[in-house]
């Protein structure tokens, strides 16, 4: 098997064995979706109105949970040194790790979202838009998140600073993703918003391996 997929498979295996980060992220996501109605009231029209935004914010926060360990575990136990000396370029290492993170969180969150959309009384059309927007947008969360994770990999409490540095960068994803759901609720075509979201995601996935690799390099040299 080629080194890229070797690393990808190993990271997914690690994620599934260390307490199931996908399970934690899904539980957190579902919990946010439960707490918000408790906070804002059970008015179904109001819930439908805010549902897209709440679920988008919830998904981003849930994906953040396991992000700080993306490079940190490998950095602390010396694996990152060995990975850096392997034939796999660090840019592809970062991409493999992003993809592993997305598969074990973003993709799982996307699959769960239609169920949570029911709790928010979203119309079928809006549910479909939400699903598509998460499918297109969560890769950006993993990608931008990987930059943050690589910058904070040497920090014992990197998990505290990580949200502060990446959430502002992710605001466009939330805006376009939740915006697409709003448009659908207003019976307008969400295509434009989804297109912008896809463009943001594609840009993030293309550029962040380089930023993350540069940051890993500087940390190995530190």
């Amino acid at each position: 098997m080629n080194p890229f997929f070797t690393l990808l498979a190993r990271d997914i295996r690690l994620a599934s064995r260390s307490g199931g980060s996908a399970f934690l992220a899904l539980s957190f996501f579902a919990l946010v979706a439960t707490l918000v109605p408790l906070g804002v009231g059970a008015d179904l029209r109001l819930l439908a109105r805010v549902g897209g935004g709440v679920l988008w914010v919830g998904a981003v926060l849930a994906a953040l949970l396991s992000l700080d360990r993306l490079f940190q575990g490998d950095f602390e136990d010396g694996s990152l040194d060995l990975i850096a000396l392997s034939p796999l370029p660090l840019e592809l290492t970062a991409l493999a790790k992003m993809l592993a993170h997305w598969l074990s969180t973003g993709a799982a969150l996307t699959l769960l979202s239609p169920l949570l959309a029911l709790l928010f009384n979203l119309t079928p059309a809006a549910t479909l838009t939400l699903f598509l927007s998460l499918l297109l947008g969560t890769p950006a969360v993993s990608a931008v998140g990987a930059i943050g994770a690589s910058l904070t990999l040497s920090l014992k409490r990197g998990g505290l600073i990580l949200p502060l540095i990446i959430l502002p960068l992710l605001s466009p994803a939330v805006i376009f993703g939740a915006g697409a759901v709003s448009l659908t609720l207003d019976r307008l075509a969400p295509g434009g918003a989804l297109g912008l979201l896809a463009a943001f995601s594609a840009g993030a996935v293309l550029l962040s391996p380089f930023a993350a690799a540069a940051s890993v390099r500087l940390n190995l040299g530190g």
Binding site: I147, L151, T152, I165, L169, S208, A211, A214, S215, L218, N219
Partner: peptide, 11 residues
């Protein structure tokens, strides 16, 4: 310094 610089450029 390097980490902050990378973050600033991403920003």
């Amino acid at each position: 310094a390097r980490a902050a610089a990378i973050l600033a450029l991403v920003g």
